[in-house]
Amino acid sequence: MPIKALLLSLFLLLPLALPLTAHADWYQTQGSAPLSAGKETARQQALEQALTEALLQAGASLTTVQSVTNGALLEQRLDIAAQGELMDYVILKEWSSQGRLWLTLRADIWPDKAITPQCNSHYHPGITLTRFAIQYPEQARFGQIYDLGTAVTARLTQQLSPIVNLMTSLPHQVLTDQRLPRSPGLRQGADVLGKQQQSRLLLSGVINDISMEEGNWMKWSLSDMPRQFALNVTLEDSFTGEQLLQKHYQVEAPWGYSKHAKVRVQEQNFWHSSYGQSADQLLQQVVRDVVSAQSCMKAIGHILQQSDEGILMDLGRQAGIKPGDRFTLVHRRQIQPGYYSETSSEAQFVVQQSHTDYSLLAPADHNAKQVRITPGDVLTALH
């Protein structure tokens, strides 16, 4: 369903009469769009982007399928399950900057208490982002954009940081370890993360297409040469080896530079170009997919120490752990690299104190007081 039709349908859902005791929530968001397609089109696209973001903040589950041609958003279909109804909005500010129209709005969203959220978990697993590499470096010769992988990683870091528990960013690429026998297998870097207990999730990727036609001088002079931007992204659980996200993203957009120009992809001017904007939109979709993929995960904590006071666990406030959260003990043994044996225990523990990166748990029942903890045991959250 096109966004215009979707938004119209949301407004048509507005009840004719609302109870006086009901309460609406306001969400302030920002949207932008390129001015190349005209001011009215840009305003509509920026408005749709900001309203979509408001629905996401209100607890919507959103899946986007988009196609971009020549740097312009031609079609965007949304499958959305909102936790409320969009009742009204007010545009607070509108301005133009570097070829884009920007606006800030405040949306009034009526919460729907009858809808059950997809996830009740407040757990925020730590994520390590590894540098994206260019699979075919020879494709970077136009524009001399050999450091595009570093620039893309930095851009993704900037977009992820405010909304996920991004703990570290590796300056090198991590490749799949084919020596591990099971499919899909753990990555070598994920094993390292798991052993060092730095973060639970590994986000990695490779830029596998930035190709464009050779073209002669006349073609470069008289037309905007199209260029591909494609990447494969994987999000995997370093503790279980599960791949939470494995997806291919691709877009084609006008390059917009001369044949022999040297383009500085680390600078804002590149990201404001038609090609940079299209790549940025693709990265925003990656961010949404990453957030969705890790949103329903169950917390798993490593036991650091056991004493008379309770159990010290390596998850704390940074991971969303709060006093009162309950965990059950799981006996976990490694059989060989990539293979584990797990036995659930009936013993339960409750969080008494939650600090930045650790928590103190106390036995919640008689079984927990009697159970013996051995190296390798973990704590799994109870929803």
Rank of each mutant, 00 (worst) to 15 (best):
L156R: 02
D147V: 11
L101H: 09
G149I: 02
L148W: 06
T150G: 09
A72Y: 06
S61N: 13
Q57T: 03
D112L: 10
E138F: 11
S121F: 02
D147C: 05
K113Y: 11
Q144I: 00
G143M: 10
P111R: 09
A58G: 11
M87H: 06
D79G: 08
G59I: 00
A151Q: 07
A107V: 05
D79W: 14
E138N: 09
E75V: 15
D88T: 06
E94T: 15
V68C: 02
A82V: 01
G143P: 11
N120P: 04
S97K: 11
P111M: 09
I80E: 00
G143I: 05
S121K: 11
P125S: 08
Y146V: 07
E94M: 04
R100T: 08
E85F: 10
V68N: 00
S67A: 11
G149C: 04
Q139Y: 04
R106Y: 02
T104D: 07
P137S: 08
R155F: 03
E85G: 06
G143D: 09
K113A: 10
E85K: 08
A154I: 02
T64D: 06
Y89A: 08
T157Q: 10
G149Q: 04
D88C: 04
P117G: 01
Y89D: 03
I109E: 05
H122W: 03
D112C: 13
T104R: 12
N120R: 14
A107K: 12
A154L: 14
D88Q: 12
T157P: 01
L105W: 15
A54Y: 01
L55A: 04
H122M: 10
H124Y: 10
F142E: 00
R155A: 12
G149Y: 02
C119M: 05
A114Q: 08
L92G: 00
